[in-house]
C-alpha cells in the first residue's frame, strides 16, 4: 500500500511517503509557515524521490485538526481533493494524536497541547495502547488550567508535547506526578508515524463532505446560534 501522509496544522509542515511499513521519504519543516506555497511542492518532491506518481497512491492520511484554521484547511483540501480525484482512500487523524504518536512508550499518558492564546489551548490526553495513541480526554478547545486539572486527576507521569513549554509554570504547579523531559524533536509532527498507523485505520466514508476538525465555531456562527437556538444550520449552501 502506497501512502502519502500530510500535516500542516500549525507552523510545522510534515510530509511522508510510505510503502506499507517502509518509510520511503519524510520531511518536517519549521522555518516558515507558508503551507499554501510549500505543501504541494514538498509532496511532489518526496513522491519523485520515492519514484512514485500520484496515481500510484493508494491512500492519503491527513492530520485534520485541531490547529490553525488555514493550516488544517490546506492539508484537508489537499487530502480530500487527492482522494476524490484519484478515487483513493483518505484517513483522517487528530492533529493532537499525530503528536502523541511520537511517544513510543507503551501505556504512557501523553498530553499534546497547541497554544490557542489567552491561556487557552487545543489539547487532548492520550494513552499509548498497542503502540497507538488512544484518547482518554477528548480533543477540545479549553482553558489550559482546566485541562491540566483534569490531567492531574490521573496521578500518573504525563508526557507534555507541542506548545506545552509555553505553560511550563502552570504545569509545574498543577501536575503532581512526574513529567518526563523530552527532546524538542518530539514536539514536532512527524507524519511518517501516522502514515504507519493510518494503514490500519478505517477510511473516511464520505470524502466529499469531510471537513477539518476545527473544534470551535466561528465567532459569528456562535453568536448567531446563541440567538437562534432552534434554527437548523445544515442547509445554508445551495446549488444555483
Amino acid at each position: 500500500m502506497k501512502i502519502l501522509a500530510i500535516d500542516t496544522s500549525n507552523r510545522p509542515l510534515s510530509v511522508a511517503v510510505l510503502d506499507d511499513a517502509t518509510v520511503l521519504a519524510a520531511i518536517t519543516v519549521t522555518v516558515h509557515q507558508k503551507h499554501a506555497e510549500y505543501l504541494l511542492p514538498e509532496i511532489e518532491r518526496l513522491l519523485a524521490m520515492a519514484e512514485l506518481k500520484p496515481t500510484d497512491l493508494d491512500r492519503v492520511v491527513v492530520a485534520a485538526g485541531p490547529g490553525s484554521y488555514t493550516g488544517i484547511r490546506i492539508a484537508v483540501t489537499t487530502a480530500k481533493t487527492l482522494a476524490a480525484t484519484l478515487n483513493i482512500d483518505m484517513v483522517a487523524v487528530s492533529s493532537l494524536a499525530t503528536l502523541a504518536a511520537n511517544v513510543p512508550v507503551e501505556g504512557a499518558l501523553v498530553a499534546p497541547i497547541f497554544d490557542a492564546r489567552n491561556q487557552n489551548a487545543f489539547a487532548g490526553l492520550y494513552r499509548i495502547k498497542n503502540g497507538v495513541p488512544t484518547a482518554v480526554i477528548a480533543d477540545a478547545h479549553t482553558a489550559v488550567a482546566d485541562f491540566l486539572a483534569a490531567v492531574n486527576k490521573y496521578g500518573e507521569p504525563v508526557w507534555f508535547l507541542g506548545d506545552a513549554a509555553n505553560f511550563n509554570d502552570l504545569i509545574a504547579t498543577t501536575i503532581s506526578a512526574a513529567t518526563p523531559a523530552i527532546s524538542p524533536w518530539l514536539n514536532l509532527p512527524q507524519v511518517a508515524t501516522i502514515g504507519l498507523l493510518g494503514q490500519k485505520l478505517t477510511p473516511v466514508s464520505d470524502v466529499d463532505r469531510f471537513v477539518p476538525n476545527y473544534l470551535r465555531l466561528t465567532q459569528a456562527e456562535a453568536e448567531w446560534r446563541a440567538k437562534n437556538p432552534e434554527e437548523d444550520t445544515e442547509s445554508y449552501v445551495e446549488k444555483i
Binding site: 488555514t70 483540501t77 459569528a220 449552501v237 445551495e238
Partner: peptide
C-alpha cells in the same frame, strides 16, 4: 454553490464562515 443564505444571517460575508463552506463544497 452559493453561500448567500448563510452570510445573510450575519448581514454580510464573514470570511472564516466562507472558507468553511468552500471546503464543504469543493470536491
Amino acid at each position: 454553490a452559493t453561500q448567500i443564505k448563510s452570510h445573510q444571517r450575519f448581514g454580510g460575508v464573514v470570511p472564516e464562515v466562507a472558507s468553511r463552506h468552500h471546503i464543504e463544497e469543493v470536491t
